[in-house]
């Protein structure tokens, strides 16, 4: 989830209520479309991610907002993706 100040358009990853820069209201941003702009395939398992290999994708929305998701499915750079459906 992402949160945006309605006055100055600064972004947060956490549900803050007021913008510390301009005191504007901060609202949750919904229904964003993302594209894959980068990825890595991770080959080493870890306690929180036991099933390897897996992919980590760097996504960017039309507004330039960025997000990380993990997936066991292979995609390509430029693919459009719904990050909420891909979360594992």
């Amino acid at each position: 989830m992402e949160y945006c100040c309605i006055k100055c358009n600064k972004w947060w990853n956490y549900p803050v209520k007021k913008c510390i820069l301009c005191d504007g209201d901060v609202v949750e941003v919904l229904e964003m479309k993302y594209k894959i702009i980068g990825y890595t395939e991770v080959f080493i398992p870890s306690e929180n991610h036991k099933r390897a290999p897996y992919f980590v994708y760097l996504l960017e929305s039309e507004e330039g907002n960025r997000k990380i998701i993990k997936s066991h499915d292979e995609h390509s750079i430029g693919d459009s993706i719904d990050p909420d459906l891909e979360l594992i």
Partner: peptide, 19 residues
């Protein structure tokens, strides 16, 4: 935003290298 989505430390720098 990062750790829970599989971004262990080497993976972060791998994304940077890829970019």
């Amino acid at each position: 935003t990062d750790q829970m989505n599989g971004l262990i430390f080497p993976a972060s720098y791998a994304l940077i290298a890829q970019q």
